[in-house]
Structure formats: structure tokens, C-alpha cells
Simulated scan of single mutants.
Amino acid sequence: MTRMKLLLVGGFLASGKTTAIYSAAKLLKASGRKAGILTNDQGKQQVDTGFIRGKGFPNEEVAGSCFCCNFNAMSGGIQRLHEDIQPDIIFAESVGSCADLAATIINPLLTLQPDRYNIVLSVFADIRLLVAFLKNEQPVFHENVSYIYQKQLDEADIIVANKIDLLSVPELDHAKAVISDAFPDKIILYQNSLSEKGIQHWLDACENFHNATLRPALNIDYDKYGAGEAELAWLDEEVGIVSEDKNAVKAALLLADTVYNKIKAGNYPIGHLKFLLDNGRSQTKISFSPFGDTNSMEQHTMEESAKAVLLVNARVQTAPQVLQDIITEAIVETENTTASKITEYTTTAFQPGYPRPTYRIIA
């Protein structure tokens, strides 16, 4: 019996997981192979899900909880993808604040369905944040959040130091020395997920990784883990934009920039800040990292429109009400600046609950 190839993709918020999965799915499709994609978030309105589905890739979603706390929904999503399209590879992207994946996802899958899966856990990290973390430079996040970050790296089968295109050659050489010294026994890839060569290297590494045994479980303090997740406010909001001057796309981009600038002005550390912009004819995803750079391969070619819809996913170290107030203020300012009308359709703002995995199997 051929084992199902499951690429479990972990790593902290804004590390480039979705970009890598999308790039890999495109590359596989071009070579005649099929990929299924399972997305996951604590919220129920996912930018990443909308983006993946908008690109036409088979997708299942686990919303409103992490994989580990809703294992049956996760395994059910994997099964549906397998039955519907018989994919060559399934990508399962976990919540960016989730850890302990070996004991709560990999080991239960291998135990409940032995001989079914070949699982690889790739943990992505923005190489700039990773180097700053390893050098104990000025901390970006609260110590409990940093605890989650460390635990994610500890259990990786493969560490993907991502976004190397944002470093100079000397900076990259220095980063490689720091990272390899910190993880001498790990498989480490240095990757630009917008590069076909980099993505192919990752796929090859995953294809060549074989470990059908149960993984060692982390020694993890769940109280500290839960406290780390609770440091982050999660906000999901969908807004509609109407512009009599047919500048709704421009207004949406200004709103996204205004939200980002207000968060930075308040010195609130950003986990991730993502927007999905839809002008009725096409979509584009816009992401802001903790370092202030943006990632959108398509926003500059999007046609203007009289109407647009903007979905916001914000994961920020602050209180939910503070984040909600920032969004509201940004909407008012954007309306006044662009003479557009912005309507808030749906809004949820919360802090994740205490992690209570369905299973935790220790090898």
C-alpha cells in the first residue's frame, strides 16, 4: 500500500507558509501532479482559504480552532481531499501560534491509521526574525509568545529559513552561520518561496524524508503555551467599499496601509496582518510582516472598480478591543480621505482559548 504524502506545514505567523504552499501547488500542477490543501485558523474568516480557493486549488478548511484541538475535523478534511481528487501530495498548514504538532497531530495520525501516512513536518521561519531570536536581540514578542516560537523550531523535521531574498549576501552568510550553529542536527533549508528553484528544493527535501515512526513529544508547559497564545488578539473583519469615482481598489489599499501604520504607531507587535482584496473580477492577497515589508504579487495590476470587498485577518500582540478600535478609526479616516463609503459586514475579535488537544500521544 502506497502511503499518503502529507506535508504538515508549521511555523510562526507571517513566516511565509501560505506563499510557499501556493507556489508548490502551482509547480506541482505544471508538472502534472495534484495537490490538495488543508487550511486552518482560530478564526472563521480566513484570508488564506479565500486566496487558495480563488486560485482554483482543491481546499478543505478547519476554522474556529487549531488542528490539534479539532483533530477529527482535520483528519476528515484530509480524507475528503484524498477521496475527491486523489492528490499526489496534501499540504496541511497549521495555525501560526500552534506548537506540539508531533504529539497532537503526527503521532495520532500514525497511531490511528498505521501504514497510511508519510508525514513531514516543515517549520517555516522568517529568517530575519529567526536570527534576531537566536541572537537574543531586542525581543519582538512577549516571552510567552517566544516560548511557542522556540517549541515550534524544536520539533521540526525540516526548518525552512524563509524570505532569504530580503537579505544581502553578507547578511545571509551571517544568518546561515547563526542558524546552523543553533540547530546542528536539523535539516535546514534557506528559501525564497517566490522562487521555483527554492520551492523545488523544498519539495525534493520532503519527498526524500522518510520517517514512519512516532515522533518524540516536546517537553512543553501548556500553561505557558496557552498564556503565549492569549497574548495575541485575533481580528477578522469583512468590509465593503463603494466609490462613486470608481476608486474602490485605491481606497482598499489605503485602508490596509492605514491599519498597518496605526498598529505600528501603537508599538503593538504584529504576528501577521493579511488582507484579501476582491474587486468583483479578481482577487489579491496583501500581507504585512513584523518588519514592515509587504507581499503582494498582484495588487499593482488590479483594475479599479466602483465596489470592492476587503477581508482583514490581524494577529497582533494587544487586546482585542484595541485592535477593533484601530480598524474602526482607520475606516473613518479612509472614508474621509477618499470620499468612499465603507460598510462593516462582519467582525470578530478575540483571544484564543486554552489549548486542549483531542489527542496527545507520546512516543
Rank of each mutant, 00 (worst) to 15 (best):
K26F: 11
N295I: 15
I199M: 10
E93W: 04
P139V: 10
V47A: 06
I119H: 06
K285M: 14
I263A: 03
H201Y: 00
G96K: 13
C69E: 12
W234A: 12
N295P: 06
L194V: 04
A314G: 11
F288T: 07
Y260M: 00
I90G: 09
L7V: 05
F51A: 13
I187G: 00
L253G: 02
F91M: 07
T337R: 15
A182I: 06
D236I: 14
D84M: 06
E229P: 00
N136W: 08
E304K: 03
G77S: 03
V160N: 13
G292I: 01
I241F: 02
S75C: 08
L172P: 07
A330W: 03
G16F: 08
L8Y: 06
L8Q: 07
N162I: 10
A319Q: 11
M297W: 13
Y359Q: 07
G54Q: 01
N267E: 14
S243D: 12
C206P: 10
E333T: 13
A63L: 11
E83V: 08
V249I: 02
L81W: 01
G64D: 05
L121W: 05
Q150T: 08
I220G: 14
E171S: 03
A177M: 06
I361W: 09
L189V: 06
G292E: 12
V239L: 14
